[in-house]
Design a protein around this nucleic acid. Structure first.
Lengths: 108, 108
DNA sequence: TGGCTATTTGGTTATATTGCCAATCTTTCG
DNA sequence: CGAAAGATTGGCAATATAACCAAATAGCCA
């Protein structure tokens, strides 16, 4: 892996890492349906506002969401909806794993 | 987020987290071209064998790669090639970010 | 069997992430 | 202005990751 390659994969990893947390996946999923302000997301997620705010800033820094101020509220929405494509494959992986463990059990 | 939802997003996050490292992305990319044994990958990655082996076991535990023994060697290959779909979107995110910073510079 | 190669595992240290609390900032409104 | 609501930031403790070295394991062959 030369330097240029290294930087490319580091850049990619930064983006994927931003998604690599259950709460942030939940937020992305939620934002794929509609824009939400921090307070709404906090209610849905069920943890501290500051925690949710930090998750949002991670997603924002990675370029995955954008924010828009409306009065005292900040609404977040998906910037690159194609990240939803991830989920399809992730489900495939999960399903494959489930199938395999079922097969193992059936075989005994 | 109720318990069932929480578990679903945790399961998804585990898979995405497995990809969230530059070396592991490199390995996935490499395996998308051809199966490789640990030793070959170690050479390509340029770090300790044990480090590469651990990265591979993370990918394997996540259900992303499979391994096959041939003599003393263990060949790894992609189990779910759809994970390559990730890259397309990741590039989009990177490109968008690059465009934006260019636009900022041009605006001064 | 004993040595050799390939790989995995254990242990340690350094670094990064996470979540909460407290404090701060911003905007609205009385 | 001053209070209140929404959001962000700083700090801290707990936990998780990562990389290396050393040691253990597995398969091959003389």
């Amino acid at each position: 892996m030369d330097q240029a390659q290294k930087e490319l994969f580091e850049a990619r990893a930064r983006i994927i890492k931003a998604m690599a947390h259950p709460t942030r996946l939940f937020i992305v999923d939620e934002l794929s349906r509609q824009a939400r302000c921090v307070n709404e997301l906090t209610g849905l997620v069920g943890s501290d506002t500051s925690t949710v705010s930090k998750h949002l800033s991670i997603l924002k820094n990675a370029g995955l969401v954008k924010d828009e101020k409306k009065g005292t509220q900040v609404f977040y929405s998906l910037k690159t909806p194609c990240i939803l494509n991830f989920f399809g494959c992730v489900e495939t992986v999960l399903k494959t794993a489930a199938d395999e463990s079922r097969a193992l059990v059936n075989r005994g």
